[in-house]
Amino acid sequence: MAVDQTLVDKLRTRFGDGVRQAQLEGLDPWVELAPDVLVDVCRFLRDDPDVACDMLNCVSGVDFFHADPKKAAKASWQPHVALVYHLSSTRTKERLVLKVTLERWKSGVPGEPPEVPSVCGIWRGANWHEREVFDLMGVRFVGHPDLRRILCPEDWEGYPLRKDYEPPQYYHGIRDH
């Protein structure tokens, strides 16, 4: 079952306002969820026999932010970080896209990662994907069993895939060119 009106209705009746919006047009239709219902929706999608999204293919973070104030003024969105979950079913071979929108920094404090519940309890494979998003995009997954950096060194500072990320000049005395 791909993302269509039936699924959205089903989710709406179950989770009410937790389903923020849905886009059924375009290449990959998606449903946007509130962070607090994410885990429940995921569990529902995994266990519902019609959907049966038993595989979490990918978790991606996208940073919507213009460092340039002129461009920021023209942008159609407010600065935010979007998490995109690509799910699929090995049984029905269908794919699903979920989105969660977060503020860029928690309570607006730069450097403080926003929080979202972890889906590790639903797919154990989410562990590494979430660690990667935490490492590169700076999103804290609450309830993650082992939230550490995965690709960058453990003492790395900043979140490289943020649009306002500045690479450090020095790392342990090694100069960046």
């Binding site: 990918c58 991606s60 996208v62 995109v84 494979g125 562990n127 590494w128 994907h129 990667e132």
Partner: peptide, 25 residues
């Protein structure tokens, strides 16, 4: 995964690696 803002340069490119998931097990 490609997010485009309408310019020639993608807003976000994301590669979902198979080995990454395979190794995690």
């Amino acid at each position: 995964y490609l997010v485009s803002d309408g310019t020639a340069i993608p807003w976000r490119t994301r590669a979902r690696s198979s080995c990454f998931a395979n190794l995690s097990v």
